[in-house]
Amino acid sequence: MTAATIMSTDVISLKADDSIAEALQLMCKNSIHNLPVLDKRGNFLGLFSLRRLSRELLPKAAKLDENSLLMHINFMPDSADELSERLIQLGQRPVSDLLEKSSKLRLCKPDTTLPELLQLLFESPVSLPVVVVEGKKKRLAGMVSNWDILTKLTVNLLSDKDSDPCKNTKKI
């Protein structure tokens, strides 16, 4: 098994100048957490994620220091109105402003083996998918999540490649 046989290829993507509000609508409509951002030629620029957005919605004081998230921040006043205002302001910005840091991303080629994929997913400091790219310009081929691997392995274990045992189940 390789990334090419496991990856999701029907990936919804964004352009760098799409708004965060547009991205959130796509995410809600399609129940997805991560969207690749591509240039006009389909080359991978970065990943827009709910994880990164969540960090931006934190009160400013919580973002001053990376280690501040380790402390209790429940003493910080923050009303629903303040949160709503931050979300409205963020929604107007382009997704390129909130791409995951490249140090958190894992990229591979379509011929990457299953053990290598598992290692990339395990090494990821956060639960982000592995982005499958082709060529020097990093043309997006697909993405592999833990869910993709679980589904493929389950299908193989049941030896019924025509059915998807995980279909109609809720992703957490």
Rank of each mutant, 00 (worst) to 15 (best):
M1Y: 04
M1H: 05
A4H: 04
T5P: 02
I6L: 11
S8D: 13
I12A: 12
L14T: 03
K15Y: 10
D17P: 02
I20P: 01
A21K: 12
Q25G: 10
L26V: 08
M27K: 04
C28S: 14
I32Q: 00
N34K: 10
L35R: 00
P36F: 07
V37K: 07
L38V: 10
L38M: 06
K40E: 15
R41D: 15
L45V: 05
L45Y: 04
S49V: 08
L50D: 08
R51L: 07
R51W: 04
L57T: 14
L58Q: 13
L58W: 03
K60R: 10
A61C: 04
L64N: 03
D65N: 11
D65T: 10
I73T: 08
F75T: 05
F75E: 06
P77M: 13
D78G: 06
A80C: 04
L83K: 05
L83S: 03
L87Q: 04
L87K: 04
L90Y: 10
L99D: 01
K101D: 12
S102V: 13
S102H: 09
S103K: 11
K104H: 11
K104G: 04
L105H: 07
R106E: 07
L107P: 05
C108P: 00
P110V: 00
P110N: 02
D111A: 09
T113N: 14
T113G: 15
L114R: 01
L114Y: 02
P115L: 15
E116H: 12
L117A: 00
L117T: 02
L118K: 08
L121R: 02
F122A: 14
E123G: 02
V126A: 14
V126Q: 12
S127I: 01
S127V: 11
G135Y: 13
K137D: 11
R139N: 02
L140W: 02
A141K: 11
G142W: 06
S145N: 14
W147R: 14
W147A: 11
W147S: 13
D148Q: 13
I149A: 07
L150Q: 13
T151F: 01
V155Y: 02
V155C: 06
L158P: 03
D160I: 11
D164M: 13
C166P: 09
C166W: 10
T169S: 15
K171C: 02
K171L: 09
